[in-house]
Design a binder for these strands. Structure first.
Lengths: 248, 248
DNA sequence: ACCCGCGCGGTACGCAGTTCCATGATCACG
DNA sequence: CGTGATCATGGAACTGCGTACCGCGCGGGT
């Protein structure tokens, strides 16, 4: 059984290797799927059973990585969300560092083939989506925290890609990249403010404020005016998303 | 001459209309390019002369919009970068609002067709790239400002898309979207800190959430709460600039 | 030895996108 | 007004990706 699995993996690896060889020799667009299958000693049909498309063979570890990220994020407990997020993003970096030369060849390919660039963006977007959902749930899953969750997830992914590209270009070594990435994440952690800033972690005081005006916050009665009481401009801005939601 | 140009545009518009009609009738993947060309009364070859691909016809205004953004950004002078950036991003929003129903149909299409989602991401990435380059140059174009420029550009685009999606879903009207977007940009402006180093140290002290009793108030005396009465969400959005000014 | 399941390869097909060429309209010029 | 050049158009043929279908052979179980 384990032998069978191993053989499947070996076959898969042969296809990937054949593909990267041919891409290096004739370029991506100059290589047909049939040529890859021939060199790997499999049929064209089998290629498409292993990889959804010609592009997919360039990102062979994507699905597995995505699953690993999700697994790491789901182990988070209240209070450990930040470290979970940090480590999950490090998984991506580690994956690339582990792939080594192949990651760099992929970088070369993506730089010159538009279709592969698009495909890579789609991959990145999937990581980002996991992060976004995780952060959003962490912050309560309410509509008013969604934008900030999107911004935060985006910032993490952007920072990651910044460091990753430096390594892919050879500007920094693997260990430097790891350290730099931790620094960057720490910096983001400090500058983003995460929970504190404009958002409704303090839902209770918000409600009591609304109630103190005598207007039930759940009532969306038509034509009924809403009364809002704020202390200053800053509080208004903080409460705006909530106010908008309640008025909707 | 102008007549010839007009005829070309009319022909192009016929093709776009035919495409959207057929996509609505048979779905995107159920529609062949030949069918689009037939309905528009042109040859298949002509279709591919007007649009690089079947996907491109779904985003017919993209190139023009990209050029408009670049044009707006290049008019920036020292000191006017922020407003240039803000207005350039508003160009994108305005483009969608202007397209109206077609933008919403595109939204429906992109939600169900993976290829179109990828394509849209590619479009967004191009806007984001313009913003990134602009911000980076603005901040000196040195390597040490690049990451922050990437983060800033990303934040602008993410915020924009957040508001845009709300309009596309019909959650807010066009005017609300405009106002909301300006608010969001203003908020980003305040929290990102832009040029200064990575910090938001401002850390507004929001302690005394305790008792904000509804005291009617006309003056802007410090510590004194303000009472706002609005009829509905739309009125709130219309009045927001005024409210902000009074609270300042 | 026989049967069953299943992965594999081969074939055929649809369709996107490209290339090449013939045709017809428009325009410049004699 | 006729003639030739230019250029957009449409048609035809081709490549190659991706899918559907089918038959074969290599297991493993009884």
């Amino acid at each position: 059984m384990s032998e069978a699995v191993s053989q499947r993996d070996q076959q898969r690896e042969r296809v990937i290797t054949a593909a990267f060889e041919l891409f290096a020799e004739r370029g991506y667009e100059g290589t047909t799927v049939e040529a890859i299958a021939d060199r790997a000693g499999v049929g064209r049909t089998t290629f498409f059973r292993m990889f959804r498309s010609k592009e997919s063979v360039v990102f062979p570890a994507h699905d597995q990585l995505l699953a690993a990220i999700e697994a790491r994020l789901t182990t988070a407990r209240p209070g450990t969300e930040k470290v979970a997020l940090s480590e999950a993003s490090e998984l991506v970096l580690e994956q690339y560092l582990h792939e080594g030369a192949r990651a760099r060849q992929r970088y070369a390919l993506t730089r010159e083939v538009e279709a592969l660039r698009e495909r890579e963006r789609a991959s990145i977007f999937q990581y980002e989506r996991l992060f976004r959902r995780f952060i959003h749930q962490w912050w309560g899953g309410t509509p008013d925290t969604l934008l900030r969750a999107e911004l935060a997830a985006n910032a993490v992914v952007t920072a990651h890609n910044h460091v990753l590209r430096a390594w892919l270009r050879g500007d920094v070594g693997a260990e430097e990249a790891r350290i730099w990435f931790r620094d960057v994440i720490a910096e983001l952690d400090a500058t983003l403010g995460w929970e504190p800033e404009p958002q409704t972690a303090k839902a209770a005081p918000d409600r009591s404020e609304a109630a103190s005006t005598g207007m039930p916050n759940t009532g969306d009665g038509e034509g009924e005016p809403a009364v809002i009481v704020v202390r200053d401009a800053a509080q208004l801005e903080r409460m705006l998303p909530t106010i908008r939601r309640m008025l909707r």
